[in-house]
Write a protein that binds this DNA or RNA. Structure first.
Lengths: 104, 104
DNA sequence: ATATTATTTCAAGAATCATTGAAATGAAAG
DNA sequence: CTTTCATTTCAATGATTCTTGAAATAATAT
């Protein structure tokens, strides 16, 4: 991962609606949630929710799968972790001061 | 920290120039670097560098101090760590899957 | 086949963010 | 006290992102 890529990924996290989507999907667990329920949970119109789901999906933070009529989304923790690792190790040179945040 | 705040902080990280600034300051260590040297290092004009320094400064990721004619900047690891902690604990409910990224 | 449900896509407009170069500020030196 | 050096601020412009509501697509049920 280079700086351009990482910047784009941070961009995907730089929106409150999208952080709420992630929280909702984390709470829902491995089965995930369908687009309609996500829209309800973050209190956004279907098209607005869809816009933010697309952003998170394109960045790889969430994965989707069709189940009958509905599209279910779930979190990809590996991808989120990968970005945090980039920040801690590449950008911040493995600084213990920063890595410590994981144990607090 | 709430989602709006966190989103704004991720926004401050969502730019390649700004990630390069952070890397340069981490490499420079606790003494930091002055604005001109930062501009040189990230290959940006003074005003462009200043714009990005202001964004990082307003978000609290970097601190500045005048030394004679120059303004020196340095990283605030606590602030960066605070954002990562928010993401891991608040957004992602302390998921071990995500917290593991710190040990990899 | 047609209707219903779930979701996305699209176009238009509004809002935010980034870049540029010129002018303004602040501190120090001659 | 004027000049120089370091940096920021500003205005203009361009680029990107977000929101809205309407239309399109995809799967299922009647």
């Amino acid at each position: 991962m280079n700086e351009e890529e990482a910047a784009a990924l941070f961009g995907a996290l730089s929106n409150a609606d999208r952080l709420r989507v992630i929280r909702a999907l984390v709470e829902a667990g491995p089965d995930g949630l369908n687009a309609g329920d996500i829209a309800d949970k973050i209190e956004a119109s279907p098209s607005r929710a869809s816009f933010h789901l697309a952003a998170l999906s394109e960045s790889g933070f969430i994965l989707r799968e069709r189940k009958s009529r509905s599209l279910y989304y779930r979190v990809d923790f590996e991808r989120i972790g990968g970005l945090l690792t980039f920040l801690m190790d590449d950008c911040c040179n493995g600084s213990p001061q920063l890595r410590n945040c994981c144990n607090s």
